[in-house]
């Protein structure tokens, strides 16, 4: 990634501020997905954008200090989560990937719908974030190595 080495304060502040909003929006997309526009895929891509901003502002080493994820591992975690949620169907003698939902009365929040689709979507979210970041960072690191050589 072409990390900005300049100390352009305005750019920095703007991008950091934006990335907060984008991150918040991405979580909203993820959780609202079942009833409003959004979902795991959209949420994941939005998060990836926000993270990419952070990597753009700081150089890679600084960003890595704050974002301590091994993104390839995130992909596996997401896949296991999605495939595992699907396996719930087995125990209830239904087909694989049958999703369940019900409405619960929770204090303070009122009636809330809880679904197995959420962990499933969360898995998709992880895979998307992981894959997008892996692709971006790998290409960016490659450039760095080349410059070093």
């Amino acid at each position: 990634m072409r990390y900005s080495r300049s100390h352009d304060v305005m750019q920095r502040v703007l991008l950091i501020t934006t990335s907060y909003f984008v991150l918040a929006y991405s979580l909203y997309f993820l959780f609202a997905g079942h009833n409003n526009p959004g979902g795991g895929f959209i949420g994941g891509l939005t998060t990836a954008c926000a993270l990419a901003f952070i990597y753009l502002v700081f150089d890679r080493d600084t960003a890595n200090e704050y974002i301590r994820f091994t993104f390839p591992a995130l992909i596996s975690i997401g896949l296991v989560l999605s495939l595992g949620t699907g396996a719930i169907g087995f125990f209830a003698n239904d087909n694989y990937l049958t999703q369940y939902f019900d409405y619960f009365e929770i204090p303070f929040f009122g009636e809330v719908e809880l679904t197995t689709a959420l962990p499933f979507d969360l898995g998709i979210y992880f895979v998307v974030v992981g894959a997008a970041m892996v692709i971006m960072l790998t290409i960016a690191d490659d450039e760095k190595e080349e410059n070093e050589n």
């Binding site: 409003n36 526009p37 979902g39």
Partner: peptide, 11 residues
């Protein structure tokens, strides 16, 4: 159990 048809279809 969802109002977003696209998302319900997906998940």
């Amino acid at each position: 159990g969802g109002y977003n048809i696209v998302n319900v279809t997906l998940v």
